[in-house]
Design a protein around this nucleic acid. Structure first.
Length: 262
DNA sequence: TCTCGTGTTTCTTG
DNA sequence: TCAAGAAACACGAG
C-alpha cells in the first residue's frame, strides 16, 4: 500500500509514542528488513531513550530518539501501528518498541521493507541527501524538464516511479497523475508536450492524496481513477470507456485509451 | 494450485 | 559510462 500519502498516515500512527521512553524492544533480528545492520545495536541504542519526533519524506520515514535515529521504508506491505501495553508480538511484527502505556509496532509480511539506524543525535546522510519533496519549492518545472530529458527514451510511467525525481510517487499515484494530465503511459519522456501540466498534476494529486488519505483517513472519491483501477472491467470515471490494464516497467498500469490518447 | 502485487536493488543488455 | 529492462526478493490473497 505505502505511497506518499499512506506513508504519512502510517507515520502518524506512532505519534502517541512521542515524548515517551522506550522500555523494551522486541525484534526478529534475522528478518530481511534488518539487512545491512546489526539489530542488536539498534535494540541497545533504543532501550531507555525517548521518542522525540518523526518526519516522512516520499516513501521514507525518520523517527528521532534522544540517542539514535530510526529510518523506516515500508516496501510493499509494511505497516506501522500502535497497540496497547502488554501487546503480544505476532509472526510478522519484526520490530516492537514497548513503552509504558503502548507498543509501537512495525509489521511486514513480504519483508520488502527496510529499517535503517544511526546512533547519535544527528540526522543521517541517507536522510539529508534525499531528493526535494514534490510539494516543496525546490521541486521546480525545470527540475522535471531536466529529468525527462535525461530519461527521454523511457516511458513516462516508469519515469514517474523514479524516486530520484518523484519521491513518494508509486504505482497508483503515477496512473492517477497520467490519467488527469491526459498522457498515455507509454509516451517516452522526451515526447511529453506540456511538461508544466505534468509538473502541476504531480503536485495536485500529491496534495489531494495527502489531505484525503493522511489527514481525513478516507479513500479518494469515485471521481478519481483510483477506485476504478483495481478490478478488470473498470470504466473511466471521466468518459465511461473500459479502462486498459497492461504491464509497463514491470508494474500493472491502468489507463483510459480515449482520455489519454492512443 | 496458480497468479498477482500500491517497491527497491542488482544484473544484463544495448 | 549511462540508460532501460528484467529478474529477484517473499508471502498472503483471491
Amino acid at each position: 500500500m505505502p505511497e506518499l500519502a499512506e506513508v504519512e498516515l502510517f507515520r502518524r500512527r506512532w505519534n502517541p509514542g512521542c515524548g515517551h521512553r522506550v522500555l523494551r524492544v522486541e525484534c526478529h533480528a534475522g528478518a530481511r528488513v534488518f539487512r545491512g545492520m546489526k539489530a542488536g545495536r539498534l535494540v541497545a541504542a533504543l532501550v531507555g531513550t525517548r521518542l522525540l519526533d518523526s518526519e516522512a519524506h516520499g516513501k521514507q520515514m525518520l523517527f528521532r530518539f534522544e540517542r539514535a535515529t530510526l529510518g523506516i521504508h515500508l516496501g510493499m506491505t509494511g505497516t506501522l501501528r500502535c497497540e496497547g501495553a502488554g501487546f503480544a508480538v505476532g509472526k510478522h511484527d519484526h520490530l516492537v518498541l514497548h513503552q509504558e502505556s503502548r507498543a509501537l509496532v512495525f509489521s511486514d509480511p513480504r519483508l520488502f521493507g527496510r529499517l535503517l539506524f544511526q546512533p547519535g543525535p544527528d540526522d543521517p546522510e541517507w536522510w539529508t541527501a534525499r531528493a526535494p519533496a514534490v510539494l516543496s519549492e525546490d521541486f521546480t518545472p525545470g527540475r522535471v524538464d531536466d529529468f525527462l530529458h535525461r530519461h527521454r527514451r523511457a516511458p513516462i510511467k516508469t519515469i514517474l516511479l523514479n524516486q530520484e525525481c518523484f519521491p513518494g510517487i508509486g504505482n497508483w499515484m503515477a496512473d492517477e497523475i497520467l490519467w488527469r494530465a491526459r498522457i498515455a503511459p507509454a509516451t517516452p519522456g522526451g515526447r511529453i508536450g506540456d511538461r508544466r501540466v505534468l509538473w502541476r498534476t504531480v503536485r495536485t494529486v500529491s496534495r489531494e492524496a495527502l489531505r484525503l488519505i493522511a489527514v481525513k483517513g478516507s479513500d479518494p472519491p469515485s471521481t478519481w481513477l483510483f477506485p476504478h483501477r483495481w478490478r478488470k472491467g473498470g470504466a473511466c470515471p471521466r468518459c465511461g470507456l473500459d479502462l486498459v490494464r497492461q504491464p509497463l516497467g514491470g508494474r500493472t498500469t491502468c489507463w483510459c485509451p480515449r482520455c489519454q490518447g492512443k
